[in-house]
Amino acid sequence: MKLKAPIMPCLWFDGQAEEAAKFYTSVFADSEITNVSYYPEAGQDKHGQAPGKVMTVVFELNGHQFMGLNGGPHFKFSEAISLCVMCENQEEIDYFWDALTADGGMEVECGWLKDKFGLSWQVMPANIAELIGSDPERSSRVMQVVLSSKKLNIAAMEAA
């Protein structure tokens, strides 16, 4: 069956969905919050949230829709899911790396980071597949650069 609507990732937060959506839409150009819904009184015995508290925030980043859900403390983000930011040049890598690690974010390794909400991101060159390529010797050299890095450096990867 063909879907008429796009698939929209839902990101589970413990009360910070609106704050996260505001942060992400400030980092990415052409982004906006498109809808905010609030917990109703109905179902409070199930959801446990105060009526009127933000339940979901739908936002768009660079043409892709996401939903932030204030679902409570039950689930946390893990590295099993990450959002990839494909960058055209080092200036873009530097910008997104700095923005997403700001205010408590954490540099990890190999182009990976966690933002202040614990969501994992990969900030990498848009031509990563070409840089790694099919030549095993070049691939090995580029991977050595990647594996020894936190934030990726396009010039170092190209030189390898």
Results as ranks from 00 to 15, higher is better:
65 Q>H: 14
65 Q>W: 11
66 F>S: 04
66 F>V: 11
67 M>H: 09
68 G>D: 14
68 G>I: 11
68 G>P: 13
69 L>D: 11
69 L>V: 10
69 L>H: 13
69 L>F: 15
69 L>R: 11
70 N>Q: 09
70 N>L: 07
70 N>E: 10
70 N>S: 11
71 G>V: 06
71 G>R: 08
72 G>R: 07
72 G>H: 08
72 G>I: 06
73 P>T: 08
73 P>V: 05
73 P>A: 15
73 P>R: 10
73 P>Y: 11
74 H>F: 11
74 H>Q: 14
75 F>N: 07
75 F>Y: 14
76 K>T: 15
76 K>E: 14
77 F>I: 09
77 F>R: 09
78 S>Y: 11
78 S>T: 15
78 S>F: 09
79 E>N: 13
79 E>T: 10
80 A>L: 09
80 A>S: 15
80 A>D: 12
80 A>C: 08
81 I>K: 00
81 I>R: 02
82 S>V: 07
83 L>A: 12
83 L>G: 00
83 L>C: 09
83 L>Q: 08
84 C>K: 09
84 C>G: 10
85 V>N: 02
85 V>Q: 05
86 M>N: 14
86 M>H: 11
86 M>L: 13
87 C>P: 07
87 C>T: 13
88 E>Q: 10
88 E>R: 10
88 E>H: 06
89 N>M: 01
89 N>Q: 04
90 Q>W: 05
90 Q>K: 04
90 Q>R: 04
91 E>V: 08
91 E>Q: 13
92 E>H: 04
92 E>I: 00
92 E>G: 00
92 E>M: 04
93 I>L: 14
93 I>H: 09
93 I>D: 03
94 D>S: 12
94 D>F: 07
94 D>R: 10
95 Y>H: 13
95 Y>I: 02
95 Y>C: 05
96 F>L: 04
96 F>M: 05
97 W>P: 01
97 W>S: 02
97 W>V: 01
98 D>F: 02
98 D>Q: 14
98 D>G: 04
98 D>Y: 00
98 D>T: 15
99 A>K: 15
99 A>D: 01
99 A>E: 15
99 A>V: 01
99 A>M: 13
100 L>R: 00
101 T>R: 03
101 T>G: 02
101 T>E: 02
102 A>I: 01
103 D>L: 01
103 D>I: 02
103 D>K: 13
103 D>W: 03
104 G>K: 05
104 G>D: 05
105 G>D: 06
105 G>V: 08
105 G>H: 08
106 M>E: 15
106 M>S: 08
106 M>P: 00
106 M>G: 00
107 E>G: 12
107 E>D: 08
108 V>D: 11
108 V>N: 08
108 V>I: 15
108 V>R: 11
108 V>G: 01
108 V>T: 06
109 E>G: 09
109 E>Y: 11
110 C>V: 12
110 C>W: 02
110 C>Q: 12
111 G>S: 09
113 L>H: 00
113 L>C: 14
114 K>S: 11
114 K>T: 14
114 K>Y: 10
114 K>P: 01
114 K>E: 13
115 D>Y: 05
115 D>H: 05
115 D>R: 04
116 K>P: 07
116 K>Q: 14
117 F>T: 04
117 F>A: 04
117 F>N: 07
117 F>L: 08
117 F>D: 07
